[in-house]
């Protein structure tokens, strides 16, 4: 299509030495939360597809809605929805942490770890709270 070599062509052709990558580093809270924010974002994209399926079923009528609701209420469905809930809260809390960073606050190493553990603790607590209230209301 064009004469410009792609990035992969250049890499294969030259065999340049690569600097050490993630595989030799011990996982740290900072790096784990960084990649977790990206993974949960991709997972939540699938959750967004689920939202559209749920809305479309509701628009189609009681039978279609009942089928989708049945899948969501099954044990397998509940486990998946629990996972989506945790992914949502982790991405939400991690996203708020990023928005605070965007205001150039909280970059000291101590602050980074405090906010990091707050994201982990907050996500777990909010997930458990959401499901507790949900199950209590459902009776």
């Amino acid at each position: 299509m064009n004469s410009k070599p792609s990035i992969s062509d250049v890499t294969v052709a030259r065999r340049r030495p690569l600097s050490p990558n993630i595989q030799i580093y011990r996982p740290q809270l900072t790096s784990v939360l960084s990649i977790a924010n990206r993974i949960t974002g991709v997972v939540l994209s699938l959750g967004a597809v689920g939202l559209v399926i749920w809305l479309t079923a509701a628009a189609m009528g009681p039978r279609a809605y009942g089928a989708v609701h049945g899948v969501g209420s099954s044990w397998g469905g509940r486990i998946v929805l629990f996972g989506f809930t945790f992914a949502f809260f982790l991405h939400l809390c991690g996203g708020i942490r990023h928005l605070v960073w965007d205001t150039v606050h909280g970059f000291e190493l101590r602050s980074i770890y405090i906010s990091g553990w707050a994201v982990v603790g907050g996500s777990v607590a909010l997930t458990v709270a959401a499901w507790t209230v949900s199950l209590l209301l459902a009776g």
């Binding site: 809605y65 939400l92 928005l99 199950l135 209301l137």
Partner: peptide
């Protein structure tokens, strides 16, 4: 979009939880 999604997603999740035991008619 992230700032907009904070209240919107929390509202949605809260509403779904409030209708957790709700049937089709409640959601509609």
């Amino acid at each position: 979009s992230a700032v907009a999604l904070v209240p919107l997603t929390v509202w949605f999740l809260g509403s779904v939880i409030a209708h957790a035991g709700g049937d089709y008619d409640a959601v509609i």
